[in-house]
């Protein structure tokens, strides 16, 4: 038993080091004075200054943030509907198809999703004249489609965990379906909706492949700019950008953990 836990701890430690060492080195070298990324030239914040002065990156970042914001909001509305339909509306024709369409985007290789959506947009434009040209709008539609699948899965699993008696009680007391949803179900699944929104935001902000297919000229998103820069080699500004992103996510995860711990303490008190 003892030997096994030694084995477990060492292999897990190696696994975690594997996950974190590259990220840690990325963060350290973002503070490097030297332009040569692996030669240490002392601490400096100059790459952060360079990052914020880089017009191309800033413009792309602003576009990506706008797209991510609209995408995650749309995806939350549609995904919550889909998740609710699949777990609370009983049987209906086409349920199997809908659940298949929810599961498939989660694993579909991005090159296929990107190509197929682009061809759809082109075909639609020549048939009905919409969408006229490609750009922010088409990227939002494409991102919403795969993000809504993630939201639906999260909402569905939250609904599966929920005790249905609360909803039944509301129905017994005469709540209409709409007020049942907005006054009872929605508050109960709000944590799932919030994490679905955040996840959609992250996925949209990060997507390179699908956006490359469906964006038009002059609509480069942040990942597209990063990719073209990174292909040329390592650039310290990108390290600075990555560090900022890691910092935001770390703060977010710590906050979420703190919240979870507080909630479990609260529920322990009531027991």
């Amino acid at each position: 038993m003892k030997r096994r836990s030694v084995f477990l701890n060492t292999s897990s430690l190696i696994g975690f080091l594997f996950l974190y060492l590259p990220m840690i080195s990325l963060v350290i070298f973002s503070f490097n004075e030297s332009k040569l990324v692996t030669v240490w030239g002392g601490w400096s914040l100059k790459w952060y200054v360079a990052l914020f002065e880089n017009e191309q990156i800033m413009q792309a970042a602003w576009l990506s943030l706008k797209i991510a914001f609209i995408t995650s909001t749309l995806a939350v509305v549609l995904g919550t509907m889909a998740g609710y339909v699949l777990s609370r509306m009983g049987r209906f024709r086409g349920k199997m198809i809908l659940s298949g369409w929810i599961a498939a985007p989660l694993v579909m290789p991005e090159v296929i999703t990107g190509l197929s959506l682009l061809l759809l947009f082109v075909a639609m434009e020549s048939m009905i004249g919409w969408p006229a040209g490609r750009g922010m709008g088409t990227i939002i539609i494409a991102h919403t489609t795969f993000c809504l699948a993630y939201v639906a899965v999260i909402v569905q699993s939250r609904l599966a965990m929920l005790d249905e008696t609360l909803e039944e009680a509301a129905m017994d007391l005469g709540a209409k379906p709409s007020s049942l949803f907005f006054l009872v179900t929605l508050p109960l699944i709000s944590p799932a909706i919030i994490s679905g929104w955040l996840l959609s935001f992250t996925l949209s902000l990060d997507d390179l492949v699908i956006a490359s297919f469906v964006s038009g000229p002059g609509n480069s998103t942040l990942p597209m700019v990063i990719f073209s820069k990174v292909r040329m080699g390592v650039t310290p500004e990108i390290n600075a950008l990555a560090t900022l992103m890691i910092a935001v996510v770390t703060v977010g995860v710590i906050a979420a953990m703190y919240q979870m711990r507080r909630q479990s303490k609260l529920s322990a008190q009531f027991k």
Partner: peptide, 25 residues
């Protein structure tokens, strides 16, 4: 909870930038 957060955290950071980290490595 802590270990799960450690597993999930990289997933929330940019996939593209994590691949980029390996170039420097």
């Amino acid at each position: 909870t802590l270990l799960l957060a450690l597993v999930v955290l990289p997933f929330w950071t940019s996939f593209l930038l994590r691949v980029y980290a390996w170039i420097g490595f």
